[in-house]
Amino acid sequence: MTVTPVLSAQSIRRAYPLAGRSVEAVRGLSLDVMAGEWVAVVGPSGCGKSTLLNLLGAIDRPTAGRIVIAGRDVSALGDAEATRFRLTGVGFVFQRFYLMPTLTAAENVELPMAEARMPRAARSARARELLAYVGLDGRAEHRPFQLSGGEQQRVAIARALANRPALLLADEPTGELDARTGAEMIALLDRLNHDGTTIVTVTHDEELAQAARRVVHMRDGVIVDDVVRRPLEATA
């Protein structure tokens, strides 16, 4: 049986101009991620992890190479299409949560659905459902400043899942959390992956990396090691 990867990055490069010359943060990297996988990208600071995640999430565009997600070449998308892809194709979780401070938890989750023109009643119901899933069913009407760091990150995950993306991308999701809350976050990601969500995380967190099914090591913009710690079941 041939399994089509959810994500396929082929020889991608990303160069930035710096002090009059070009510096490559990602240098000809290739990576395939299968549906249901949970990949943790690890490596020292400045090795290009976050740049890779931005490229995979169509936040940034590669200077060379090709990225296909759910059968769609995202490396060649124009701004409007890339925006649309970010809205429905991937879910992004940031290290610093980045919730809209003026909106409630439920409204934050509803925001991508509203942008995707989902009817008000449907998005409201899904927001409640997602908040319940991440364990925040009693906090829907709270604003970000009324929530703890862990709770804010849960809201951010619920927001990322709002439009049922094919892939969840998380940039240091435990980076701002204490050890206990970080462990809760890892458990939540594990549950998500177990329930079928494909996840790519970038992390320094050893525990998070240990929880992932596969760990990709990066150095100087390239993958130096790729270890499958828990293979997907045959059903995947």
Binding site: G57, I59, D79, A80, T83, R84, F85, R86, L87, T88, G91, F92, F94, Y98, M100, P101, L111, P112, E115, A116, R159, A160, N163
Partner: peptide, 16 residues
């Protein structure tokens, strides 16, 4: 500016 960048990152269109 950060909030706006996040909105763009999660897929909110420029026009919005």
């Amino acid at each position: 500016i950060g909030e706006i960048a996040v909105m763009r990152a999660i897929g909110v269109a420029r026009a919005r």
